[in-house]
Simulated scan of single mutants.
Amino acid sequence: MDFDQPPVVRISVDPEVRPSARDWPMTVPAVAQLVRDGLDLPPGVTFLVGENGSGKSTIVEAVAMAYGLSPEGGSNQGRHSTRATESTLGSVLTLRRGLGSARWGFFLRAETMHGWYTFSEASDEKGRAPRYHEMSHGESFLEVLRTRFDSPGFYCLDEPEAALSFSSSLGLISVLHRVVESGGQVLCATHSPVLAAMPGATILEAGEWGLRRTSWEELGVVQHWRAYLDAPGRYLRHVLD
């Protein structure tokens, strides 16, 4: 029996509790496919890439919740909530855990990290937590990466590039590499072709087709960025006109 497995081996839904196909987020093709077919999650880093509304963030949020993490971000050792906006998907997902894998997890969600910073400081009775609110947006993200992504476990990230410069995005790739080397596993929703280029990562593209495995070169976002950087005026003429 293999006891050297990643924290999450498979994501699925019990057919008896499957939500109605007429209700959101089941109307999103990528979510409908996940609920219908399940998903084997490979070791290492898996990137979910797609346009806004394609379901990638909804899936990452739901998987984080099913793992026991707060939908607003943070670890499985503390929960906080400001306003519940999460979908019901997380409540029906079932995760098959890896035998002998670590149970630690952390959810870094760009749009709600401000609330998690407040929670972290308020629950820090000994005054040892970093003072995230005294840092710039990017600096606070980097500090979270430095202090929280430091052990084997399951890490969910939702569009972490939102706060990061180009060089800091490269630094994030280094952090994710270190996590994987230590036996951790990562599920990340992103728009960034920089992050998606990480060697050895699995890329799933979400769209009207559902979820499909693809390569970095075949990603729509990569092709659009290449075309834009080659001739930005061609794109901007349509926007400004």
Rank of each mutant, 00 (worst) to 15 (best):
M1K: 12
D2S: 15
F3E: 12
P6A: 02
P6T: 13
V8E: 07
R10M: 05
R10H: 10
S12K: 13
S12Q: 10
S12A: 11
V13Y: 08
D14T: 15
E16C: 09
V17R: 09
R18T: 09
S20K: 10
S20F: 10
S20A: 11
S20H: 14
D23E: 09
D23K: 15
P25M: 01
M26V: 05
M26R: 15
A30Y: 06
L39V: 13
P42E: 03
G44T: 13
G44I: 12
F47T: 03
V49A: 05
V49N: 08
G50Q: 04
S57M: 04
V63H: 11
A64M: 08
A66G: 14
A66Q: 13
Y67S: 06
S70P: 15
P71I: 01
G74H: 06
S75Q: 10
N76M: 06
G78I: 07
R79M: 06
R83V: 06
A84I: 11
A84Y: 07
E86M: 08
S87Q: 12
T88E: 03
L89V: 10
G90E: 08
G90K: 10
V92L: 04
L93Q: 11
L95Y: 13
R96W: 08
R97Q: 12
G98R: 09
G100L: 10
A102F: 08
R103N: 13
F106N: 06
R109K: 15
E111Q: 11
T112S: 04
T112P: 03
G115H: 05
G115Y: 00
Y117D: 00
S120H: 10
E121Y: 07
S123K: 14
S123I: 04
S123H: 10
S123R: 10
E125H: 13
Y132C: 00
M135H: 02
S136N: 00
G138F: 01
S140P: 11
V144E: 00
R146D: 00
R146Q: 03
F149D: 02
S151N: 05
G153D: 03
Y155N: 01
P160D: 01
S167M: 02
I173H: 02
S174N: 08
S174I: 11
V175E: 02
L176A: 03
L176S: 02
H177I: 13
R178Y: 05
V180E: 02
E181P: 12
S182F: 02
G183S: 12
G183N: 11
G184Q: 03
Q185M: 05
V186D: 02
V186R: 07
C188K: 04
A189L: 04
V194R: 03
V194K: 02
V194P: 07
M198V: 12
P199E: 03
T202R: 12
A206R: 12
G207H: 10
G210A: 07
G210D: 03
G210F: 02
L211V: 12
R212H: 07
R213S: 05
S215I: 02
W216D: 07
E218Y: 10
G220K: 06
V221F: 08
Q223S: 09
H224I: 00
H224M: 05
H224P: 12
H224W: 08
R226L: 03
A227P: 15
Y228T: 15
Y228L: 11
L229W: 14
P232S: 06
P232M: 03
G233R: 15
R234E: 07
Y235C: 13
R237P: 09
V239P: 12
V239T: 14
L240S: 13
D241R: 15
